[in-house]
Design a protein around this nucleic acid. Structure first.
Lengths: 212, 212
DNA sequence: TTAAAAATACACCGAAAGGGTTATTGACTT
DNA sequence: AAGTCAATAACCCTTTCGGTGTATTTTTAA
């Protein structure tokens, strides 16, 4: 075990970054980058044939994204650890990745030495994350169970309308219930989406009434 | 800001450890241990009078434990960060502490240098955790996002697609995830709506996973 | 009393959702 | 061998949704 190399695969669409990572990994004792892939489809097709310790996965890929790719690969590669390596540091991406099975999450601005350390850490059972990422994860735990604080920002009218949304009412139906115009309903909903940082009805409901 | 010291208080019942931590903090430039307390009751009584950056809190204390102490102190000290510093590495203690408002969680076997680094990290907005701790946190998240109970009228494929619907995915996003055409996704969804006797996504979700 | 937030409304626009229909393939049943 | 079902895919069509603006009124707060 001691002398064996940690085998690494990389999924990254930007050639410069992909090659830089490959060189980094291959140039370090104890690591070996055996395969690299430029997109999710290629990775899905070829990666399961190899027994890999650690996958460095970019999120922003053409076509299927890195999170979807990982989700598809996970059941095929039960002994492989996945680490997201991306420029995204927003909550949605972080939580989505971690809930989908990533064990580590680092940002591309992480230093080469730290990337290698993170790979080793991951392989040894750790969950390497930068501390900004860790803080967000911790915050998310603290906010579990209670209706998210963003919901508190909603006005009474907005909450009322959100409630209709949750029951599947159409804009015009809500308008009829409240004796206001459909346009006003739309405006309220637009404001709700702004406050909750979402784009669709379903996302808003998931955020507002987060189920366990 | 650069020249200012990070003020630290310590709550720890074992005198040897308490004094070792105090010496460590006071002997390092950029840090100052202004107060130490031997139990939760003393800390609760005296600590809120001081403006402290970081509290190192032991969990196992005589009487009230460190988690309860932190919960009581938090509302009184909104600008203070709490770091649990304990021998417990079991899930219950970790989650309880983090959900109760701790921003960092380190084990007592952490090296002196790493403790100092963790204090600085915490003060700068990070969430220092050893990677074993991080891994446990991540695992707990992964077990939260599991699929709800199935509607047995639906085929496997339909259930799968319903699950994507519940997460707010667009048709084309589902199509990309499943490697099928958007039209097929639409057809499946149409069949789902038929079986559930509904017309919209939200109604389907209400029917499938009935929430209040 | 002045400023702000909240609620109301409308117009233009493109994207997305959903209804209806038809068709091909493979798998399982009878 | 015929029939059913599930999964796949495409077509046309209308409605709904959501973004980006602007604007008026009312309420609330400073």
């Amino acid at each position: 075990m001691k002398g064996e190399k940690i085998t690494v695969s990389i999924v990254e669409d930007i050639e410069d970054i992909r090659e830089a990572l490959r060189v980094l990994v291959n140039g370090s004792t104890g690591f070996e980058c055996t395969h690299v892939y430029a997109d999710a489809e290629e990775a899905l097709d070829k990666m399961p044939a190899n027994d890999i310790d650690v996958v460095l996965m970019d999120i922003n890929l053409p076509g299927m994204d890195g999170i979807g790719c990982m989700k598809a690969l996970k059941p095929l590669m039960p002994n492989t650890q996945f680490m997201m390596c991306t420029v995204y540091d927003d909550d949605d991406h972080i939580f989505n990745a971690l809930q989908s099975g990533a064990s580590g999450y680092i940002l591309k601005r992480t230093s080469p030495a730290q990337i290698l350390e993170a790979i080793r850490d991951l392989h040894e059972g750790g969950s390497p994350m930068s501390s900004e990422i860790a803080r967000r994860v911790v915050f998310s735990m603290q906010n579990k169970g209670k209706t998210s604080e963003a919901v508190e920002l909603l006005t009474d009218r907005e909450t009322e309308i959100l409630d209709f949304l949750s029951k599947g009412y159409l804009y015009k139906e809500i308008a009829a219930e409240l004796f206001i115009s459909k346009e006003t309903v739309k405006k309220h909903i637009h404001n709700i989406y702004d406050k909750l940082h979402v784009q669709t009805r379903t996302e808003a409901l998931n955020k507002a009434y987060q189920r366990k």
